[in-house]
Design a protein around this nucleic acid. Structure first.
Lengths: 217, 217
DNA sequence: TTAAGAGTGAGACAAATGTCCCGATTTATA
DNA sequence: TATAAATCGGGACATTTGTCTCACTCTTAA
C-alpha cells in the first residue's frame, strides 16, 4: 500500500555524495497536492523520492480514478518511461510535501547500463511492483469489498499513516458511497473474526483499527 | 491479452545456436492442460516459450481464478522468481501443446549480469508487463463489464485465437453466468453475430462498435 | 451573529453481479 | 442406437454496488 525502497534511497545518498556523474542529479521539491508527473506527458527525468508521500493513479476518461500505490521514501517513478520512451502511464501527486532526486534520462540509462548495483535494484523494484500489482488485482476482483477494505485498514494502521477516505475508495476502485457503507457494516458487525476473513491481523492492528473507527464517528 | 515477445525468442534462437554456455539450456514440452509452473512452488528454471499458448493465473483460497495474461511465443515465465528467489506467484498452464527453453537460474542470473542485450530485453519485458497490468486493472475496476468484455472480444478476434468462455470470464474476473448474460445483452443490442461465440467481424467493424460504445457513454 | 456554500454521511432506488437451479443439448458409453 | 452422464445457457431471486438526493455540519465572509 505505502511502498518504500530503502536500498534505492541509500544508493542515491551515496551516489550524490560521490561527485562526478552525480552532478546531473538535481533535488526538487513539491508542495502537497502538486503533480510530479502528469499522465500522458512526455518526461525527461526519473524521480526518486527522498522525503514525503505521493499517490500514483490513473484517471480514466469517465472521470474515475484508480490509485495503484502510495509511494514513499526511496521509490522511483517515471522509470517505465525512462526505460521505454512512452507517454506517462500514471499521475504522481504529492499528498504531503515531497522532495525528490531528479535524474535525467541520459544518466538513468547510463546507470542502468554501467552500474551493476543500480541495474539490480531496478530489476528488483520492477519485480516487486509486478508481484504486488498482481496480488492486489486478483484479490480485489475475487473477494468482496469488505475483505479488501479491512485489509487496507490493517495496512494503514500498521504503517501508522492516514489516508483520506476519497483516496482509500479510489485505491479500492469503488465509490466513496460504497466505502462508507462497507465501513458502517464493519462497525455494526464489531468487525472481528479476522480469521474468517483470511487476513492476518495482529491484536495491535485490530485495536488501532477500532480506535480509528471511533475517531471517524 | 495474448502477449508475445519476438525479440526474446529471437535472442534465444541465436543463443542456443551458438554453443558454449547455451548447453545448459534444455528444451521441454508440455501437453495441453499441464502446468509448467505451480503457484507456491519453488523453482530452479526460467522458461521462455518457443511454441504454444499458456495462461498465467492466480488461484485464490476461495476457489476462484484470476487470469492475468495469455502468454505465447517468446514470453518468459518464472523470471520474477529467478530475480527474487520467492515462491511462484502464478500458475502457468498450457492451453495448447507447448515447447519451452528451460534456463537454469544460474545461467539466467549470469545472463542478466553479463549479457547487456538480455538484460535490456528483460527490463523491457518487465516494463511492458507493468504497464499492461496497470492499464487492465484500472479499466476493469472503473468501467462496466460490458466494455471490458467487448474489448476482450475485439482482441480475441484481432489475434485470431479462440479462448474458452471459462477462461474469458476468469480473465475478466467475473462468473461465467455474468459473462453469458453480458454477451446476451450485447447480442440483443445487435453488436454481435447472433450465432454465438464465433465472432464474424472484421477489425474495422469492431473498431466501429467500440466507437459507438464511446458515444453511448 | 447570520447566511451562503462546501463538504460529508446516509436513505431510497436503480443497476449490476452472484448464487442456485432446471431443462436442453451435447458427449460418452454400453 | 439408446441411455446415462456431463456440459451449458439462462430464469429467478439475493446480494452488492452505483446514482441521486437531501439533511446536517462546518466554514467563511458580510
Amino acid at each position: 500500500m505505502l511502498r518504500t525502497n530503502p536500498a534505492f534511497l541509500h544508493f542515491m545518498e551515496r551516489f550524490t555524495a560521490s561527485g562526478r556523474e552525480s552532478e546531473a542529479v538535481a533535488i526538487k521539491t513539491f508542495t502537497a497536492g502538486t503533480r510530479l508527473i502528469r499522465q500522458g506527458d512526455t518526461i525527461s527525468h526519473v524521480y526518486i523520492i527522498r522525503e514525503g508521500i505521493t499517490k500514483c493513479y490513473i484517471e480514466e476518461d469517465n472521470g474515475k480514478d484508480y490509485i495503484f500505490e502510495f509511494l514513499g521514501k526511496g521509490e522511483i517513478t517515471g522509470d517505465l518511461e525512462g526505460i521505454r520512451k512512452e507517454k506517462c502511464l500514471c499521475n504522481i501527486e504529492a499528498i504531503t510535501p515531497v522532495t525528490v532526486y531528479a535524474i535525467p534520462h541520459t544518466l538513468f540509462s547510463w546507470l542502468l547500463l554501467n552500474n551493476t548495483e543500480f541495474n539490480g535494484l531496478m530489476l528488483e523494484e520492477l519485480v516487486i511492483r509486478i508481484r504486488q500489482t498482481c496480488i492486489r488485482a486478483s484479490y480485489q476482483q475475487l473477494y468482496p469489498v469488505e475483505y479488501a477494505l479491512l485489509r487496507l485498514l490493517a495496512l494503514e494502521a500498521e504503517q501508522d499513516i492516514v489516508i483520506p477516505k476519497k483516496d482509500m475508495a479510489a485505491y479500492l476502485g469503488i465509490t466513496t458511497r460504497s466505502f462508507n457503507r462497507t465501513l458502517k457494516e464493519l462497525r455494526a458487525k464489531n468487525i472481528l473474526d479476522p480469521q474468517g476473513m483470511n487476513i492476518d491481523l495482529t491484536r495491535k492492528q485490530l485495536e488501532e483499527i477500532l480506535r480509528r473507527f471511533e475517531d471517524m464517528k
